[in-house]
Deep mutational scan, measured.
Amino acid sequence: RPFRVCDHKRTIRKGLTAATRQELLAKALETLLLNGVLTLVLEEDGTAVDSEDFFQLLEDDTCLMVLQSGQSWS
């Protein structure tokens, strides 16, 4: 499924495809050149996407933000 993913400053944006939350996090880690533990949130309001069940309910092309440890949505 297609998703739009950005870093916490919204300066890097990438289109990625993934079937699972874990797959998307792995691709974001590599594509956005990030490291460490990542958190996935909705870009629009910062809602945490912390379960596979919730991830599977997201629509195609949902905009997501990837946060590294110590970063927060704004």
Rank of each mutant, 00 (worst) to 15 (best):
I12Q: 08
T20K: 01
L33P: 13
D61K: 09
M65I: 02
L40W: 03
I12M: 15
A28V: 10
Q68S: 13
E30K: 14
G70P: 05
F55N: 00
E43D: 12
Q71M: 06
V5N: 01
H8L: 05
D50S: 09
W73L: 03
F54G: 13
L64V: 09
L40G: 04
S69T: 11
R4H: 10
R1C: 04
G36L: 00
L34D: 00
L67Y: 00
V66C: 05
R10E: 00
L42D: 02
L29T: 13
K14H: 09
D61Y: 06
E52L: 03
H8K: 05
V49S: 01
L58W: 01
I12D: 12
L40E: 02
C6V: 13
E59K: 13
L67R: 06
Q68T: 08
N35M: 08
L57K: 12
L16A: 07
F3M: 14
F55D: 00
V41A: 10
L38W: 04
T17F: 10
L34E: 06
L40H: 00
A19F: 10
L64S: 06
P2T: 15
G36D: 15
F54W: 11
D50G: 08
D53L: 07
V49M: 04
Q68I: 04
L16Y: 04
T11F: 11
L34V: 09
R4P: 04
T31R: 10
L33C: 15
Q71L: 02
D61S: 08
P2K: 15
Q71V: 02
T17G: 05
G46L: 01
R10Q: 02
L34I: 08
A48N: 14
G15K: 10
K9T: 11
G70T: 07
V66P: 00
L16C: 09
V37L: 08
L58C: 04
L34P: 08
L33N: 14
G70L: 04
L33I: 13
L38E: 14
T20S: 13
E59Y: 06
T39A: 09
A48F: 09
A18Q: 01
E59F: 04
L33G: 15
T31P: 11
V37D: 13
Q56F: 04
S74M: 10
T20W: 05
K9W: 05
L40P: 07
D7Y: 01
T62S: 09
G15Q: 14
Q71A: 04
D53N: 08
V5H: 00
L29G: 15
M65F: 01
D53K: 11
N35W: 05
Q22M: 15
V37P: 10
D60V: 09
E30I: 06
L29W: 11
T17K: 08
L58Y: 01
T20L: 02
L16H: 00
V5P: 03
A28R: 01
I12N: 09
E44Y: 07
V49R: 00
V37Y: 10
G46S: 01
L33A: 14
Q71Y: 04
E59S: 12
L16W: 02
T39P: 07
L57A: 14
G15V: 14
K14Q: 09
L64M: 09
L40M: 13
L25V: 08
K27G: 11
K9L: 09
G70E: 10
E43S: 03
G46I: 06
F55G: 00
L29H: 11
Q68Y: 02
I12P: 04
S69D: 10
R21L: 11
D45K: 01
L34A: 06
K9D: 07
D45A: 04
S69C: 14
F55Y: 03
S51P: 05
W73C: 05
R13C: 12
R13Q: 15
D61M: 08
I12K: 10
E52V: 04
D61C: 05
F55M: 05
V66S: 01
L58F: 01
T17C: 08
L29N: 15
M65Q: 00
D50Y: 05
L40S: 03
Q22T: 11
F55K: 00
D7I: 08
N35A: 12
T39L: 06
Q56W: 04
T39F: 06
L40V: 12
L25F: 05
G46M: 00
Q68V: 09
F55I: 00
E44C: 10
L33M: 15
R4W: 05
T31G: 14
T62I: 07
T39R: 13
V5I: 15
L29A: 14
T47C: 07
L40K: 03
T62P: 02
E43C: 01
D45G: 02
F54P: 05
T20Y: 02
